[in-house]
């Protein structure tokens, strides 16, 4: 049995103002696992990631990391806080929240500097990372001069540079062009090969099979409605459709528009049809 990294037991959370965002959620994440969290808008994906990163705390139930309970009180300990922050990295859904420094470079080095990483080492990591995800030319720009996709890359870099054991990613590939998406997937994949645990909320079903071993589906009941392997869940189109996760896809082929379910992760046969007719 793999070692547990995060565990949630019967966790409920409501935002101030009373709207419940999670109710009685029980879930485990194991060492070295790649988990994808999917679910319609407003089902509590971001809320759960924020709980895991100990930025908010459960109203009831227990959230723990490596066997230690995460509460406001335990996180007040400076040593514990620092240890936790160096082991867990969180990429926020909104990159504007995460890029708060005047330049991209300062933003990326912010994390390791706070954690006291050696300056020469920070420079080395910065250069390697910027090359790998192709953002070297953006380093001296101000975040307000970047496009959404560029901001997302910078935000991801600002977390990867800390080399945390666990990556919590909130829709890291939303709104990215295909090449950029590929770069990000490769980086995440590499992190996983290096033994890191990845928990990622996403709406991009077509990448789920590639980036996740386990999939947890969040539903309107503010809880997990199903967990399983990526293949198993992605194959169940009827289930996905019931939960707002697959849309009807309209497109043209052979000059005729027609509609069918958008099933991701499978080879689309139409191109072959077209070439057959030529």
């Amino acid at each position: 049995m793999a070692q547990s990294v995060f565990s949630l037991k019967d966790v409920s959370y409501s935002y101030p103002g009373g709207i419940p965002a999670l109710e009685n959620l029980t879930l485990d994440f194991n060492q070295g696992e790649r988990a994808a969290i999917i679910g319609a808008n407003g089902t509590g994906k971001s809320t759960m990631l924020t709980l895991l990163d100990a930025l908010i705390f459960a109203n009831s139930g227990i959230v723990s990391a490596w066997g230690n309970q995460l509460t406001e009180k335990t996180m007040r300990d400076a040593g514990r806080q620092r240890d936790f922050r160096s082991r867990v990295g969180f990429v926020f859904q909104n990159p504007d929240v995460q890029l708060f420094c005047p330049t991209v470079r300062e933003d990326i080095v912010f994390g390791p500097l706070q954690l006291g990483v050696d300056h020469a080492e920070i420079r080395r990591r910065l250069e390697a990372l910027a090359n790998r995800i192709r953002i070297s030319h953006l380093l001296d720009r101000s975040p307000h001069q970047l496009s959404l996709g560029e901001k997302k890359k910078a935000a991801i870099a600002s977390v990867l540079i800390m080399e945390p054991e666990v990556l919590l990613l909130d829709e890291p590939t939303a709104g990215l062009d295909p090449q950029t998406m590929r770069d990000i997937i490769d980086v995440i994949d590499q992190a996983h090969k290096n033994g890191k645990t990845v928990v990622m909320a996403t709406h991009d079903l077509h990448i789920v099979e590639e980036i996740a071993d386990v999939v947890h589906v969040f539903g309107g009941n503010k809880n997990v409605i199903r967990s399983g392997t990526a293949e198993e869940i992605l194959a169940d189109t009827e289930f996905l459709q019931q939960n707002n996760l697959v849309h009807i896809h309209v497109h043209r082929h052979l000059g005729v528009a027609h509609a069918h379910l958008h099933e991701h992760g499978h080879e689309h046969p139409h191109h072959r049809d077209i070439s057959g007719f030529r």
Binding site: R85, S86, V97, F110, G111, L113, S158
Partner: peptide
Amino acid sequence: LHSQVYDAMVARGFSGEAFVL
């Protein structure tokens, strides 16, 4: 935004005193 930015700083190890390169 203000509270989220603060969270983002804490998430990367900010503890009241900032260090720069």
